[in-house]
Design a protein around this nucleic acid. Structure first.
Length: 288
DNA sequence: CGACCCCTGCGC
DNA sequence: GCGCAGGGGTCG
């Protein structure tokens, strides 16, 4: 579910926990936790050191890269939260967490607040790093963050692949943060056909696409993310960016700019929507 | 690189 | 009952 705008909304919603001591943590489902030891081995079962969950410590900093969220601990440990398709992070002052089904992890803070991780489908989870360095190393494998992507960095990323631009935008190793919704929305905004070959885009198109990605993501953050079904912010409130979607999930409906019927197809196992008129094929490579 | 899997719930 | 859903890891 959550792409960069949703994760950024959650990151800002968690600011109140910075500096607050974490008194306890309860892991209800061990298998959503990946525990990386000092020897780099990763464990999905077995006991977890409370300190790795930041128990007895506090969060000194919240960081986001792409769709991932890192809680930097005062004890040198790092928790990275990956939301997958249905993951949520909530903050509540209630002792009893509302809608507790699928809540897999609960942190209890010294001020009485509770932070929790809920994930119906369990595609998401948390990763525990013993050192800041191990965490940074993992993040170094992600492409540059999409929110403030420069033309130059986008150009560099896209020149590394001959796959269709839509598929490339979804590859977090090339560019971090864009998912299925905002890939389609950015391509529409830039007037680029999803089948265009990444490393064959004209410079002008790359300039335009970088601008569209920044604009679409920033606008979605202002709207506090897109809620199609599961996404909620840390206060359990839905976002409203879905009201601004021009193409995503609108196949068969008229383009809001030119009225042409929007088309859709599957690319990289994901539905892709575009306007055949506003996003003309780059050459003759458009399939179907 | 693409194919396939992980999992639950919802709408048709 | 089936197909589909914002993601991503692993396999061949």
């Amino acid at each position: 579910m959550p792409e960069l705008p949703e994760v950024e909304t959650i990151r800002s919603g968690l600011e109140p926990i910075v500096g607050v001591e974490i008194r306890d943590c309860r892991v209800r489902r061990r298998d959503v936790v990946r525990d990386q030891w000092l020897d780099n081995s990763v464990h999905r079962r077995g006991p977890i050191e409370p300190g790795s969950l930041l128990v007895g410590a506090s969060v000194v900093r919240l960081e986001r890269k792409g769709k991932q969220l890192a809680l930097i601990g005062s004890n040198g440990r790092v928790i990275v939260i990956q939301l997958g398709m249905s993951g949520q992070v909530g903050l509540t002052s209630a002792t009893k967490i509302p809608n507790a089904k699928h809540v897999h992890i609960v942190w209890i803070l010294r001020n009485g607040q509770r932070m929790f991780f809920r994930d119906t489908r369990r595609f998401g989870g948390i990763v525990l790093y013993r050192t800041l360095k191990a965490h940074e190393h993992a993040w170094s494998r992600l492409g540059p963050d999409a929110l403030n992507i420069s033309t130059k960095d986008l150009q560099r990323a896209l020149s590394r692949t001959q796959r269709a631009i839509k598929v490339a935008l979804l590859d977090q190793h090339l560019l971090a943060g864009v998912g299925n919704i905002y890939a389609d929305e950015s391509l529409f905004d830039a007037g680029i056909n999803p089948f265009c070959i990444s490393d064959a885009l004209e410079h002008k198109q790359v300039v335009r696409l970088a601008g569209s990605i920044r604009k679409i993501l920033a606008r979605a953050i202002k709207a506090r993310g897109s809620t199609l079904r599961d996404y909620r912010d840390t206060d359990a409130q839905p976002g409203s960016a879905q009201l601004e979607h021009m193409v995503y999930a609108r196949a068969g409906q008229p383009c809001l700019v030119c009225g042409t019927t929007l088309r859709s197809t599957r690319m990289a196992q994901r539905i892709t929507c575009w306007c055949p008129r506003c996003q003309p094929a780059c050459t003759e490579q458009e399939s179907e």
